[in-house]
Amino acid sequence: MFKRQRKAPRSVTVEHAPDEALSVPALSEPAVESGPAVGAEPAVEPVVVAAVAEVVAAAEQATSLLRLKGWRGGLLLHLDADAPWDDVLAALYDKLDAVRDFWAGATCTLDLGMRAGCPDGLGLLPAQLEERYGLTVVAVAAAHPEVREAIGVAGLEALAELEPAVVRSEPEVPSPPVPKYVKGTVRSGQVLEADGHLIIMGDVNAGAELRAGGDIMVFGTLRGMAHAGAAGERGAVIVALNLRPTQLRIADLIARAPDGGQPPLSKHPERAEVRGQEIHILSM
């Protein structure tokens, strides 16, 4: 695609040799790479969370004796309040047995709902769940005070009601910034900045500055300073129909126009990109 490579501006060590690498303004994320969000849940308990998604779907069509939910980073087991306790237990074991090894290490809360009276054997249930599935019961919720009292006696935390599940705010997935599009001439002294790509439909005069987290494209003549990949993205490129910049910067590299005037105008648009440790200009 690139026929010739112009020698001209190279990655130049600037002659006053900065002591430190260019300090570039920190932008959130390079625009290029970040694809669509994959896991919409945070990384806290990935296993359980993924499981909940599956099981919730299954549970919905399954028996009404038991409903599973993700809650407080673990499981919430709604146990039907009206059905006989043994039926409920059976449904529970049935469900858990389906993917027996899956629960290891997870925590759960049991919800007895409006069930009146403390079912026999509730005190033993946590130990059984722990032993068979590695599932730790952290609390039991019940509407009736006497049930909660019994739960407390059994050495478990009793909850009067379930707090509404914390609405998990969508994690900050860095979505690629919208490219900035500018129409018109950018004049000396003006600075245009974009978190993502920057597209100029017009000329950029000497003394003007462009700064973009992503690529810079100038549909016109670029005579000013352009800094692509300003957050450190060396893969960023600068493209212009006429590339005659005073200075180009890509990430931490700087190239300046050669002393003694610019080389003759290319007949094609040109593109500046990093190759190795230098900024190269290629005809397109």
Binding site: V14, P18, G189, A206, T246, I254
Partner: peptide, 16 residues
């Protein structure tokens, strides 16, 4: 805001 000394000295492309 109206720099020119760099231009007269031919150093305009070295400004970082």
């Amino acid at each position: 805001g109206l720099r020119n000394l760099d231009l007269i000295l031919g150093l305009e492309n070295r400004i970082v």
